[in-house]
């Protein structure tokens, strides 16, 4: 049975590295893997989504409505935006960080209250964590992505060692220590 994971967030939060780590971990488990990313304009502070699918044989690289087993959301609003892609019994791992879209910044719309409650009320199983302070604790606010990968790793059936190897394979050497710490903080919180 194939599994589908979505990584959603705001351009610049490092969702592409997260999907690479995830892809690498799944590959070493021997799965057929497809990872779909969108590059270009949507990187600039826009809503971004990466699809990761794995199993015996994967065809489509994208995930549609009601197809995701797990959504890893780097930002609250993005969890709500992409929730329709979640399966009825799916799980959402969400960073409680809020990033205002430009329309909110300039007062054209409001950042809604109770986003995470709305996600829960829709029937999703929700795991929340505040990744930014953990990333700062690990040594850089930019490590939010690896903290979140740690948090998600705990919610999969893949051994921790495989995840750690994947982080090592995907992160440049000089940032490795920082990122391993970030992974641990995400995994254990």
């Amino acid at each position: 049975m194939n599994k589908s994971i979505m990584i959603v967030g705001v351009g610049g939060q490092g969702t592409l590295l997260a999907s690479r780590i995830l892809g690498s971990a799944l590959l070493s488990k021997g799965y057929d893997v497809k990872v779909s990313e969108v590059h270009g304009m949507s990187q600039r502070g826009g809503s971004v989504v990466t699809y990761v699918k794995y199993g015996e044989k994967v065809y489509s690289p994208v995930i549609g409505e009601g197809e995701a087993d797990l959504i890893l959301a780097f930002e609250q609003l993005e969890a709500a935006r992409w929730l329709s892609c979640l399966k009825k019994d799916g799980k959402v791992v969400v960073n409680t960080q809020k990033i205002d879209p430009m329309s909110v910044v300039i007062g054209d719309s409001v950042y809604p209250d109770g986003v995470i409650d709305a996600v829960k009320n829709a029937g999703a199983t929700v795991v929340e964590l505040d990744a930014l302070p953990l990333a700062v604790e690990a040594g850089s606010p930019k490590a939010v992505n690896v903290v979140l990968i740690g948090a998600m790793a705990k919610n999969t059936d893949i051994d921790k060692e495989i995840w750690l190897d994947a982080v090592k394979a995907c992160v440049p050497g000089k940032f490795l220590e920082l990122n391993l710490k970030a992974f641990e903080l995400g995994y254990s919180n």
């Binding site: 351009g11 826009g46 009601g66 929730l83 329709s84 009825k88 879209p101 719309s109 109770g114 829709a122």
Partner: peptide, 15 residues
């Protein structure tokens, strides 16, 4: 397909 939806207005987030 059956899908779930959060009952909340989500503002757009263009680049």
């Amino acid at each position: 397909v059956e899908s779930v939806k959060a009952d909340v207005d989500v503002p757009a987030r263009p680049p």
